[in-house]
């Protein structure tokens, strides 16, 4: 897989927002690649810059933000595209599904209208063909009675069905890359599993790539090929799902894994990482996790560690604990 050219390649991406308190570095120089047919999960606490990363890739940031670095999708540099060209890519090559299926569909349009709309927008296709294609898509995402579904309005369907409809809309134009921003958070647990399985199946059938944003490590374990752990706008660890789960290196990743409930071992309280994500304004060069870290050393508060491999694998970590030059205290 590593020999291939990546489908999506994010390099030195920096997304800053101007706020009243100063410059907020929501995403601060991150790198990652997503290859064809691969699922990459971005995990982290709330406020780590996961969603901002997704929005940066989609080009949906408000005007108050500045974006630097490069986002390359299938040979096209997304940050340099004009608005019109970006619009042609969205919903077509690059698609996205949201957290809240209930509010992401227009309440006054039928499901059918909302699916055919995307097809009519991006493909040269007649209305009849578009309706036929929508019926296929509805069947594809596992909903029966397509003829009735396309005539119904969003309020007449359940959350799980709406999320399936959202997936159908997102997949309408056979995207190469699907971004899913916490697609199962708003659904109840039984439906979550169904939707995840569906996404996984569809991904394998169509050979698209998926960038899944989540804070649910259960989801990560189930679907991810590779994992990117983000903390305070930076990538702190990156590796395959086995590497992350069996051999977590960064203390933050370890903390996240420890905070996950494990079946069979009932504890009074779940483990929590003390403290919270620092405010992303005026951060001094240091490891941003330093004041929450139990292994904090002197260097951690003075220099920012770089994301690098410390052995021959692709497993990268940004932590001073693994720097050979640093003398362990």
């Amino acid at each position: 897989m590593t020999q291939q050219k990546p489908l999506l390649s994010v390099n030195h991406l920096k997304t800053y927002f101007q706020s009243d308190d100063g410059l907020v570095k929501a995403v601060d120089g991150i790198n990652f690649d997503v290859y064809q047919g691969e699922t990459v999960c971005i995990v982290g606490e709330s406020g780590c810059g996961k969603s901002v990363t997704a929005m940066s890739i989609m080009g949906l940031l408000p005007d108050s933000s500045t974006i630097q670095g490069s986002i390359n999708l299938d040979g096209e540099e997304l940050t340099k595209l004009s608005k019109g060209n970006m619009r042609r890519i969205r919903g077509n090559k690059l698609s996205m599904i949201f957290q809240e299926p209930m509010t992401s569909l227009n309440p006054v349009m039928t499901i059918g209208e909302q699916i055919t709309e995307v097809l009519l927008e991006h493909q040269v296709i007649s209305k009849k063909q578009a309706i036929k294609k929508s019926l296929e898509l509805i069947k594809l995402v596992g909903i029966g009675r397509g003829e009735q579904i396309i005539k119904s309005y969003p309020h007449q369907l359940s959350g799980g069905m709406l999320q399936r409809v959202m997936i159908a809309i997102a997949l309408a134009c056979d995207p190469k890359m699907l971004i899913a921003d916490e697609p199962t958070t708003a659904l109840d647990v039984t439906i979550q599993a169904q939707v995840l399985n569906l996404l996984q199946d569809l991904k394998e059938e169509t050979n698209m790539s998926m960038l899944l944003i989540t804070h649910d490590l259960g989801v990560v374990a189930e679907v991810a090929d590779r994992v990117v752990v983000m903390y305070a706008g930076k990538v702190v660890e990156q590796g395959t799902v086995e590497e992350i789960f069996t051999d977590p290196k960064h203390p933050y990743t370890r903390g996240l894994l420890q905070a996950k409930p494990v079946l069979g071992s009932r504890k009074k309280r779940l483990y929590t990482i003390p403290g919270q994500v620092p405010k992303l304004v005026d951060l001094k060069p240091s490891c941003y996790f330093a004041d929450r870290c139990e292994h904090c050393m002197e260097i951690c508060t003075q220099q920012t560690p770089e994301l690098k491999c410390n052995d021959n694998s692709e497993h990268k970590v940004a932590c001073w604990l693994y720097e050979k030059e640093v003398v362990h205290q």
Binding site: P107, V108, E136, K139, L140, V141, G142, I143, G144, R145, Q148, I149, K151, S152, Y153, Q156, L157, G160, M161, R164, L171, D174, Q194, N197, L198, D201, L202, E205, T206
Partner: peptide, 24 residues
């Protein structure tokens, strides 16, 4: 695209609501 073998969810209960449909 081939069809997913994902199970088809039961939609019997919504047929009635769909019949009268429409916000108007």
């Amino acid at each position: 695209m081939s069809y997913s073998n994902n199970e088809v969810i039961q939609t019997d209960h919504i047929t009635k609501t769909v019949q009268r449909s429409s916000l108007w």
